[in-house]
Simulated scan of single mutants.
Amino acid sequence: MAGIDIHHPHQLSPERAREAVQQVADKLVDKFGVDCRWQGDVLEFNRPGVDGRIALLPGEVHVTAELGFLLAAMQGPIESGIRRVLDERFA
């Protein structure tokens, strides 16, 4: 399985950071049919072929995901897309 591991710094308040992650989650649900649930300050998401987490840490968002066989071939573009969205939401 291919993995994604991104640490993205931010300077948002915890409340604003959580709102930004929720907006990302809402898009994942609408666009890809991903199941999302909060466990404390960690948003867990999954669907066939991907299992991941977005952890809210002080001053940082940590995104991890394991990609299944079919999505592993697209790891580069997927990771680039995640970085772009993080730059937009946490600027």
Rank of each mutant, 00 (worst) to 15 (best):
I54M: 07
A73Q: 13
E15I: 11
P77V: 09
S80R: 13
P14S: 04
P14D: 04
P48C: 03
S13N: 08
Q23T: 14
P58K: 02
S13E: 13
C36P: 07
H62N: 04
R84A: 07
V24Q: 15
A17D: 01
D87M: 06
E79C: 01
G49W: 00
H62P: 03
V24G: 14
I54N: 01
R84V: 00
L70F: 11
G33W: 10
R53K: 15
A91Y: 13
F90D: 05
H62R: 07
K31E: 15
D26Y: 06
V34G: 02
P9Y: 04
V63W: 00
V50M: 03
E15Y: 08
E66Y: 04
N46D: 14
D41H: 02
L71V: 02
V85F: 08
R89V: 07
P77T: 06
I82T: 04
E44W: 08
A2R: 08
K31N: 15
L28P: 05
A65I: 00
H62K: 09
I54Q: 00
R53N: 13
D35H: 14
G3A: 10
L71W: 01
G40Q: 08
D87G: 10
P14I: 02
D87W: 11
R83F: 04
L12Y: 11
E60P: 02
H10V: 09
R53V: 10
I54D: 00
R83I: 11
R89P: 01
L71D: 03
F32D: 07
E60D: 11
H10W: 11
A91S: 15
V85H: 11
R84K: 13
K31Q: 15
F45T: 01
A65H: 02
V42F: 03
T64M: 14
V63A: 01
M1A: 10
P48G: 06
G81D: 15
P9L: 05
E15F: 11
G49Y: 00
